[in-house]
Design a binder for these strands. Structure first.
Lengths: 161, 161
DNA sequence: CTTGACAGGTTCTTTTTCGGAACCCATTGT
DNA sequence: ACAATGGGTTCCGAAAAAGAACCTGTCAAG
């Protein structure tokens, strides 16, 4: 499979990965969530090659995850900000952070803690069912074809996620 | 920054990405969650180059996300199964799936639906605070240094996620 | 006892992508 | 006139991926 075909696959995971599935993109987005907005600051904080950064920012902008907002004219300068689509990646970030905290931390514990502003506790995310509110664990979901499935799959009945 | 340094960064996101942050790994894991276990089946379903697949399976096994389980002797054959660490990636999958459903589906809707076994509804995951149960939205958390932070950061006070 | 099939890899060659450094361009401050 | 600043682009050599062929045990058939 070619990487460019990924966004046309009948799988939401593959389609998501066509945007965030490479080595740098999620780290760029981490910085966005930390309110980093300018080219130079991304570069310094990440130590990323400049042309790779330019490419990732352009792809994220084209994908509607970031948008360029001018913050001065003459010389025109623009900064990158998360769109609603980008902010919606927060659960993805949280899931990866929590997994890293649990499984990748050394014996001393995780390097950074997250505290829920509303309740004041150090917390992690719990995934619950949008309909019944119960916690979702591995494989608590079954899978069936949806309205956007290709006709060929609808005819056959398929192992899908 | 070099890719190999990623797992030593004081950031759980970076550490998670050192394992799942490349083009193929999460697609391999998608298949694992669909109970694909054998080399040939991964290859056929994903259309991945064989040596890339061998490399990813080895890295995931070394990382403790998969384990090799023999299913016959002479010739010895082994299959790959998710460990507890691997099963714990389910929330990451769900987050990416839900984001793709919401933002990457065509006008007809998502290609695949997930139904919660327990309640029978088509559902998505809601992220809630482990302490107070409230839903977590973008940037509902603040960040502070944890026990595993490097001493240099502890001295300085740092913008971290 | 040679041939073939099967699962699970490894090796080879060609194309993409990445890391690092240098260069470009408009504007402003000195 | 000259350097600095922000935001890139260009060029090169190194690394990784795609695609295809080849290798290795083991069993089964002819």
């Amino acid at each position: 499979m070619r990487w460019e075909e990924l966004d046309r696959q009948p799988c939401s995971l593959a389609r998501s990965l066509s945007i965030v599935g490479d080595r740098w993109t999620l780290l760029v987005l981490r910085e966005c969530f930390l309110r980093v907005r300018r080219f130079e600051e991304f570069e310094q904080r990440l130590g990323i090659a400049r042309h790779v950064l330019a490419d990732r920012l352009k792809k994220l902008t084209d994908a509607g995850v970031l948008r360029k907002v001018p913050y001065q004219e003459r010389p025109r300068r623009e900064e990158y900000r998360l769109t609603e689509k980008g902010l919606d990646l927060y659960p993805v970030m949280l899931s990866l952070l929590d997994w890293g905290d649990k499984w990748m931390a050394g014996p001393e514990g995780p390097p950074v803690l997250r505290r829920h502003k509303a309740c004041g506790h150090v917390a992690h995310a719990v995934h619950t069912c949008s309909e019944c509110g119960e916690e979702l664990k591995a494989r608590d979901m079954t899978v069936e074809l949806g309205p956007g499935a290709p006709a060929a799959l609808k005819a056959a009945g398929v192992k899908g996620e």
